[in-house]
Design a protein around this nucleic acid. Sequence first.
RNA 1: GCGGCUAUAGUUCAGCGGCAGAACGCCUGACUGUGGCUCAGGAUGUCGUGGGUUCGAUCCCCACUAGCCGCCCCA
Length: 441
Amino acid sequence: MTTPVKAVRGTRDLLPPETALWSRIEATAREVFARYNFGEIRTPIFEETTLFARGVGEETDIVSKEMYTWEDRARAQSEKTQSLTLRPENTAGVVRAYIEHKLSETGQLQKLFYIGPQFRRERPQKGRYRQFFQIGAEVIGPPHAGSESPLRDAEVLEMLASLLEELGIEGWTLRLNSVGSASDRPAYLAKLREAIAPVAHRMCADCQRRAETNPLRVLDCKVAEDQEIIESLPRIADSLDEASRAHFAAVCAALEAARVPYTLDHRLVRGLDYYTRTTFEFTHGGLGAQNALLGGGRYDGLSEAIGGPKAPGIGFAIGQDRLVLTLQAQEQEEAERADAWVAPVGEAQNPASLALARELRRAGLRVELGDGGFRVRKSMEVADRQARRIILLGEDELASGVLTVKDFSTAVQTKIPRAELAAHLLAARAEAKQKKEKQRA
RNA sequence: GCGGCUAUAGUUCAGCGGCAGAACGCCUGACUGUGGCUCAGGAUGUCGUGGGUUCGAUCCCCACUAGCCGCCCCA
């Protein structure tokens, strides 16, 4: 006996009715992005390994231990093998495309969004998968197009607040910080190392390790005993140079003018090397250890790091899997029922029933088709689970052209002439939709 | 990569060193063109995989795999 093949660890199948929620999220995101004048970009799901090594950072966890990387086979003896990697995030790919297609030559700000799978080889747990889905966007361009403006940062954050609101996500928190520019960050790191050194021995084992490898991460520690020490460490905000400080203040001022609530989190440190100045996360309780719904920031040096022109930018990535989890926890998504269930009464009515179903479907209705082999009782039972109403098509109906329609919510049975049926069902659907929206508001 | 918990029917789960169980769902009938309620019947399954202990293992032990939770990190 052969053992059945299963989806690999950390990947999963998405099935109806859950997929309806995924589609709704994507549709809402597209609508919102369109209002802010973003266009869609689709980049390959694998790239040369060096793109991520140079872009995301050799020393980050993502690159050093979480990438799916392989040596691509050489087809001819003269050809060299190439190291390729499934994308662990999408910003590096977008910036690569920006450079490759010389978008900087347009002189315009590029506003691009993407929706797609990403891959990281981590231990799966709630809200974390090895293939996961991100919805993200980037604003990038030459400095003279205004790409460095703090207004871009604030606009992106304001857009995210609107998107979450439109999706119906309740209780999110925007955490905001500035991690400094390429010029003032090294100074802060030195100061931080100096401050940690004498107290490191009183901190947890992880922090002692981080003090060496990545001192910024010490700020992220959640061990209770360490909190007092961490609070006493120097803050990034005090090490920012005049330009960075003014930039951050301008972002905050614009958010306040737009009434987007935020909290400053001077300990918000993100794990990708390319971030400069503004960094942010939208978090949500109820997601367990993975409380970040989305994260992002400014990356003024990324383009140059991977061989492109100076092209400052800001972007974010939304964890679509986590959005789904949050919305599912908020509301039990009701499985969508078909508008009508066409029930042939007797197998002789099967062909005519297909014709009727086609008629209704072409009118835009969601229709399920039964089988004349079912007894009417069985058709009723099945239809009640799958559709809002049943349409009986037997000898009588076929002869008279007047169909029997039974609505399951009211148990009322009516006779409707075939010519009026589609219009009648469409009207009923519009009414139901209106009622539902009213209830929501 | 590290630690903890878990794995039995389609689903949620109980169980016990000696016949494999419940609820819900599913199928059939009572009811030949009328569902939801009811009643009567029925089918569920290599008890995650492999090994060990034992007269005998779904149960005890070991390994593996997968899931969940936490750590690390991140979306």
